[in-house]
Amino acid sequence: MDFTLKIWRQDGPEAKGKFVTYQIKNISHDCSFLEMLDQLNEQLVDKIEKPVCFDHDCREGICGMCSLYINGRPHGNDSGITTCQLHMRKFKDGDTIVIEPWRAKAFPIIKDLVVSRTAFDKIIQEGGYVSINTGGVPDGNAIAISKVDSDLAMDAAQCIGCGACVAACKNASAMLFVSAKVSQFALLPQGKPEAKERVEKMVAKMDELGFGNCTNTGACEAECPKEIKLTNIARLNREFYAAKLS
């Protein structure tokens, strides 16, 4: 398969970026999107040109490192997957593929397609954890948790913090991310003692970092590689009101 790639190139955070067009040939349809970019980079290195910088790590859809806004969609033209799981068979031979970085004030570009998602770490630092004194392993049945709640908590805990929700949202809102991180604890007894402080501080940090406001468009849910549901945002709202009114 042959492709024309239009890739955003930007030397650094303050540099002016632009699209550069590359031609790439003889790509296997079984090749992953990132492997295709690897091949492009090998060609660029052979020509003593700067390779395209892009984030990646596990390449099996669980680490949340890969990003890329491909032809108008975060993680490309498929559902429930990250860019590393996107395969070239999803495109047609001869397609032009436009590749952009996540664009949000809170996710500044570091280089080319790499953005800083430190903003998410800062939100987590505000309370996206449970403070516990570690010790011996507790008995598995010591705290009874309903199957419904444990399933919902585990669904929310699937969020890998890739930032596709922010990238897809027309307002660059981080509500889906924050709602998943609040929900995974709000649903479990272990998360209750710090619930009030957690939701207040995480929302305050989200606002402070310059993310937009959620207008319930649903684009985040549609693009989330872990299929985090909008019901989590409603839960975040409920948790927030309960915390503020208590």
């Binding site: 108008g72 436009v98 952009e100 897809a168 809102s173 310059g210 549609a222």
Partner: peptide, 12 residues
């Protein structure tokens, strides 16, 4: 919250 826009319109 999004000072630089995407070149391709969002298809989400």
């Amino acid at each position: 919250a999004r000072p630089s826009k995407y070149a391709v319109t969002n298809h989400s």
